[in-house]
Amino acid sequence: MSTPRFLTLPPGVRSTSIETTAGSFAALEALPVSGVPERWPALLVPGLTGSKEDFIAVLQTLAQSGRRVIAIDMRGQFETSGPDDPAAYTCAALGNDIDLLAQEISEGEPVHLVGHSFGGLVTREAVIDGRSKFASYTLMSSGPAAIVGPRERAGRAMLSELPELGMEQLWHNRMEPEALAAGVPDEIVSFLRKRLFSNSPTGMVTMTREVLSAPDRCGELTQVEVPLLVLYGEHDDGWPPSMQAEMALRLNADCVVVPGAVHSPAVEAPETTAAALIRFWNTAEARPLS
């Protein structure tokens, strides 16, 4: 569970929605101070229990590099509605949404794509299918296949509890105690509760099954001619850092380890994370497009 450090939108960041043929997606949009982007846009996709707010701390800095930056709620997450149909929440279905979003915000330009955690498993679908032109692709605290370790165990526990006990018990038995134990401020705890209860229960169950059963698609990613970055916290408790480092080698990707961060570098070390993304994006834009 990602915990945003603050919820007040910084200057230059606004709430909006992105309209696509698959529906409307709640988003946060950041623009340069001038209001005129001079570089290619970026699309940021959150993890399973996250939302667009997980990127608040980096949006202003990323936009100041001359870009329009969009963070979204995926289908069934927080302020983006979703149907009561499990088929709508597979990685393939959500990846199709990413294609549509990228095409909507691109305005004819390639898009820098970032997928955090489960968002990495979703976004790679769009990268592999080749329907959209991406300027670069960043896997942030994500992995080559199904999640392992403590978060795998938490996911399996959630699968066993959620259908029977519902969101209320999931919050009171697991998420609220974790937030309070971590010393999360009251206003953030209130936001986390509101976010959880806004999620589609069907979506939560299906996406959890997806993150627990995802196949390894690194071989397919290596066939895509797009600059790749693997970025993760040095203490990641999702996919182990060693697994992500090995994935970076397999993908021939750039690799950035964020000191002091755990599973949410954009929340835990925003300036370091934003600087790494900007550096990678600038380098990618300097390369000739294939």
Score class of each variant (00 low, 15 high):
Q64R: 08
I70P: 03
A71R: 04
S81H: 05
P83R: 09
D84E: 15
P86Y: 02
P86S: 07
A87E: 09
A88G: 07
Y89P: 14
A92N: 13
A93I: 06
G95A: 04
D97E: 06
I98K: 01
L101V: 04
L101F: 04
A102D: 02
A102S: 10
Q103L: 08
E104N: 11
E107I: 10
E107K: 14
F118C: 12
F118M: 15
G119P: 11
G120H: 01
G120E: 03
L121C: 11
T123M: 09
A126K: 01
V127M: 04
R131Y: 00
R131K: 08
S132M: 00
K133Y: 07
A135K: 04
G143R: 01
P144R: 09
P144M: 03
P144D: 12
A146C: 09
I147V: 15
I147E: 15
R151V: 07
E152I: 00
A157G: 14
M158I: 12
L159D: 09
E161M: 15
E168A: 14
W171M: 13
N173I: 10
N173E: 13
M175I: 15
E178T: 13
A181D: 11
E187C: 06
I188A: 07
F191W: 11
R193D: 08
R195S: 15
F197M: 14
S200F: 02
P201T: 13
